[in-house]
Design a protein around this nucleic acid. Structure first.
Length: 324
DNA sequence: ACCCAGGCGTCAG
DNA sequence: CTGACGCCTGGG
């Protein structure tokens, strides 16, 4: 079945810049791929595979959105719409954020620079956990490639009119996969040549993070209910995530922000550290821990969005070029 | 054409 | 606190 519907401008508050939102390097999931005029992704809607395409009706950030859906069975479009609104942060009032940013002279310039940039929320919490772990000490393109590679190797494959699409593998599946080529060769009893062994975690380009990934899959399967993180007390959720090897403060905050929509998160990476030090601490070298608590105290419920806006601004505005 | 230094967060020492 | 981790990027 194919469907098409619109999300009108009056159904959400404030602008949306779709390409910016999708490609701004948020760690919850790889960017949706562009196919023609649409950005596409396979999403499970109540256990049904659903190929969703989304585009803006015009180049204007004040435009409405057009959604194309393909699914093997009948769908309740309300559910698809609800999910799309969740993923692209459409329930969030950006104009209210801009009022807050206006009042801070350091944040004010980010408004025009990032207009329509929204939280790009993960559709799969487990994928978000793994992709956040993979993003640590890594470049955006490299972790994106790794996640896509895991999907194609071990996810469920679904056929649609425009090609094959894959889900992210479940923890069970990740646990059943060898970590490196030598293990893989042993598993198949030496049938394969070493360079044919690509069905292992290392072959996805994750490097030393392979054991973190396997470990995280084990923890999720056996002792952690990811859905709890939606409502748990923030610091408790943060501390629990820190128990997972490979998850430090930055990654834990990213998981809570992009995976669970916890807006009070303030993930501090090098860019945030640099720009907060420059703007609010007179360029002094402030420890990451301090930057984090400063951001959470100073920006409160806006912290996640301030981080998102400052991150993009710091990387792309040229302001940081002066600082090395 | 080539090489090698510089990033990126977390962990272990 | 410092170095190691893997790989991509970009400058020489």
């Amino acid at each position: 079945m194919k469907y098409k519907f619109k999300i009108n401008k009056d159904e959400f508050k404030g602008p949306i810049n779709l390409p910016l939102t999708i490609d701004s390097g948020q760690t919850g999931q790889p960017p949706w791929l562009k196919k023609g005029r649409y950005f596409q992704e396979l999403i499970m809607v109540e256990d049904q595979p659903c190929l969703i395409g989304i585009r803006c009706s015009s180049d204007d950030v004040e435009s409405s959105l057009v959604i194309e859906v393909e699914s093997p069975q009948n769908l309740e479009l309300d559910k698809v719409k609800y999910l799309v609104k969740e993923i692209f942060g459409l329930n969030y009032d950006l104009n209210r954020l801009y009022k807050f940013l206006e009042d801070d002279p350091y944040l004010k310039p980010t408004i025009d620079f990032c207009k329509g940039l929204r939280l790009f929320k993960a559709h799969d919490p487990f994928e978000c956990l793994i992709s956040s772990i993979t993003s640590a000490n890594n470049s955006i393109i490299r972790w994106n490639r790794s996640i896509r590679s895991m999907r194609e190797k071990w996810g469920y494959k679904y056929d649609f009119s425009t090609g094959n699409y894959y889900t992210f593998p479940h923890p069970d599946k990740i646990l059943s996969v060898p970590e490196k080529d030598l293990e893989e060769m042993e598993l198949c009893g030496g049938e394969k040549d070493l360079n044919e062994c690509v069905n292992n975690l290392i072959a996805c380009g994750v490097g030393y993070r392979s054991r973190y990934i396997r470990n995280a899959a084990w923890i999720v399967k056996n002792e952690m209910e990811l859905d709890d993180f939606f409502n748990m007390d923030y610091e408790e959720a943060f501390n629990r995530l820190l128990q997972i090897p490979g998850v430090g403060p930055k990654v834990a905050d990213c998981i809570l922000l992009y995976g669970f929509g916890r807006m009070e998160a303030f993930p501090v990476d090098v860019w945030i550290k640099r720009i907060i030090s420059k703007l609010y601490f007179d360029g002094k070298n402030v420890p990451v821990k301090k930057i984090r608590s400063f951001g959470m105290d100073e920006f409160g419920e806006y912290a996640g969005y301030v981080q998102l806006y400052l991150f993009h601004y710091a990387r792309k505005s040229g302001l940081m070029k002066s600082l090395k």
